Deep mutational scan, measured.
Amino acid sequence: MGFKLLSKLLVYLTASIMAIASPLAFSVDSSGEYPTVSEIPVGEVRLYQIADGVWSHIATQSFDGAVYPSNGLIVRDGDELLLIDTAWGAKNTAALLAEIEKQIGLPVTRAVSTHFHDDRVGGVDVLRAAGVATYASPSTRRLAEVEGNEIPTHSLEGLSSSGDAVRFGPVELFYPGAAHSTDNLIVYVPSASVLYGGCAIYELSRTSAGNVADADLAEWPTSIERIQQHYPEAQFVIPGHGLPGGLDLLKHTTNVVKAHTNRSVVE
């Protein structure tokens, strides 16, 4: 069995187990497998329904001669939608809004960016022009300005110390501490036991640490421990890039980060 097929099978099995364990909360999309990078042309966006009122959005972007996937989250909030992270750029984010209108038909009224990198804030200006209120932590807003990236308009308070959590509509926002970046936030959907790890969490097929220019490698494993301790009931975990899975993604990420750190020390 090929690795790609095995990865998709694991996603399907995880979703099936969740649907059985929580039949009222989960209505997993039966329309197909989780979209992969090879299936999404740059400039297009796919939506994948995880649970009743919960979707991931998947886009792709060219970077350094390669094409990478990027995940975000959409959560229903009454007759409105909360968006977590842009679709990595203005063109993708405009396509995301169009796809949401086509498939869901509810307005996106608020959006949260989970850290300051372009795959999370690139497209904020498109959201703002569409009347979406954009939010991020003060740290993310400051770092985005320093980096020359787009800056969300509103500040999220109460997320300055490791372990801080605040309720934001249908989700809980959690600051686990520094990891992929010093400002990275985690998003949890309690009604569906869905954990969105953003770039602080890796997919299972990833074996290298990737972009760690703004990471705190020493603190990252401790931050992941905080996530595990705060959300032990999480059933569906979405990484910032690639295929979702279960809580095993947290341990896998820790292993990859520690291996990278150990290699760096040896070198």
Rank of each mutant, 00 (worst) to 15 (best):
G2V: 12
K4S: 05
K4D: 11
L5C: 07
L6V: 09
L6K: 05
K8G: 09
L9N: 08
T14D: 10
T14G: 04
T14E: 14
M18Q: 05
A19I: 13
A19C: 07
S22L: 13
S22H: 13
P23K: 12
L24A: 09
A25N: 12
A25D: 06
A25E: 07
A25F: 07
F26N: 05
D29H: 06
D29R: 08
S30Q: 06
S31I: 05
S31V: 15
E33H: 13
E33D: 11
E33K: 14
Y34A: 13
P35C: 15
T36L: 10
T36V: 12
S38H: 15
P41A: 09
P41D: 11
G43S: 10
G43C: 04
V45Q: 04
Y48P: 05
Q49L: 12
Q49G: 12
A51W: 09
A51T: 08
G53W: 11
G53H: 10
V54S: 04
V54H: 01
W55H: 04
W55T: 02
W55G: 01
W55S: 01
S56G: 10
H57V: 03
I58F: 14
I58D: 03
I58Q: 06
T60H: 14
Q61R: 09
Q61V: 13
S62E: 13
F63R: 14
D64P: 14
V67I: 09
Y68V: 12
S70F: 02
N71V: 04
G72I: 00
L73T: 02
I74D: 03
R76K: 07
R76F: 15
D77V: 05
D77L: 04
D77Y: 13
G78V: 11
G78P: 04
D79R: 12
L81M: 08
L81F: 01
L81Q: 00
L81W: 00
L82V: 13
L83I: 15
L83Q: 04
L83E: 04
I84Q: 00
T86Q: 01
T86K: 02
A87D: 00
A87L: 03
G89I: 01
G89S: 12
G89T: 14
G89R: 04
K91T: 12
N92I: 03
T93F: 01
A94M: 13
A94Y: 11
A94W: 12
A95H: 15
L96P: 02
L97M: 05
L97T: 04
L97I: 04
A98R: 08
A98G: 09
E99G: 13
E101G: 13
E101S: 12
K102C: 14
I104R: 00
G105A: 15
L106I: 11
V108Y: 01
V108W: 02
T109D: 13
R110G: 12
V112S: 02
V112H: 04
V112F: 07
S113M: 15
S113L: 11
S113N: 15
F116A: 15
H117N: 00
D118F: 06
D118T: 11
D119V: 02
R120G: 12
V121I: 06
G122R: 12
G122L: 15
G122Q: 10
G122F: 04
G122P: 04
G123I: 03
G123R: 03
D125Q: 13
L127M: 07
L127G: 01
R128E: 08
G131V: 04
A133N: 05
T134L: 03
A136G: 12
P138Q: 05
P138W: 15
S139K: 12
S139F: 02
T140F: 03
R141C: 10
R141I: 13
E145H: 14
E145K: 12
V146C: 14
E147A: 14
E147Q: 11
G148E: 11
E150W: 05
P152S: 10
T153S: 08
T153H: 12
T153F: 06
H154W: 14
H154S: 13
H154V: 14
H154N: 04
H154R: 09
S155E: 13
S155T: 13
L156E: 02
L156Q: 04
L156H: 03
G158E: 13
G158V: 11
L159W: 03
L159D: 02
L159H: 04
S160I: 12
S160N: 13
S160V: 14
S160A: 14
S161K: 12
S162C: 11
G163V: 08
D164E: 08
A165M: 15
V166L: 10
V166M: 09
F168Q: 03
P170R: 12
P170F: 04
V171D: 02
V171M: 05
F174T: 02
Y175K: 02
Y175S: 04
P176D: 02
P176E: 00
G177P: 01
A178Q: 14
A178M: 12
A179K: 02
A179C: 02
H180R: 02
S181V: 05
S181R: 01
D183P: 00
D183S: 01
N184I: 02
L185D: 01
I186Y: 03
V187C: 02
Y188E: 00
V189K: 00
P190I: 04
P190G: 06
S191F: 07
A192W: 06
A192L: 06
A192C: 04
A192Y: 06
V194D: 01
V194T: 06
L195V: 10
Y196I: 02
Y196G: 02
G197L: 04
G198K: 00
C199S: 01
C199W: 02
C199M: 00
A200G: 05
A200V: 08
Y202C: 04
L204W: 12
L204A: 07
L204Q: 05
L204P: 12
S205N: 05
S205P: 11
T207D: 15
T207M: 11
S208Q: 10
S208P: 08
A209M: 11
A209E: 07
A209Q: 10
A209C: 09
G210H: 04
V212I: 08
A213S: 13
A215W: 04
A215H: 04
D216T: 11
L217P: 06
A218E: 11
A218C: 09
E219S: 15
E219N: 05
E219Y: 15
W220T: 00
W220M: 02
W220V: 00
P221H: 07
T222A: 12
S223Q: 03
I224E: 02
I224K: 01
R226E: 11
R226M: 07
I227K: 03
Q228E: 12
Q228G: 13
H230V: 10
H230Y: 07
H230F: 15
H230M: 10
P232K: 10
E233Y: 12
A234L: 12
A234T: 06
Q235S: 09
Q235M: 05
V237I: 05
V237D: 01
V237L: 05
I238C: 03
I238M: 13
I238D: 00
I238K: 01
P239T: 06
G240I: 04
H241V: 00
H241C: 00
G242M: 00
P244W: 05
G245M: 01
G246P: 06
G246F: 05
G246A: 10
G246W: 04
G246E: 06
L247N: 05
L247Q: 06
L247R: 12
D248M: 07
D248Y: 12
D248R: 07
L249A: 02
L250V: 10
L250N: 00
H252D: 02
T254E: 12
T254M: 08
V257P: 00
K258C: 09
A259Y: 07
A259P: 07
A259N: 15
H260C: 08
T261A: 12
N262I: 06
N262E: 08
R263P: 07
S264Y: 05
V265R: 10
V265S: 07
V266I: 04
V266P: 11
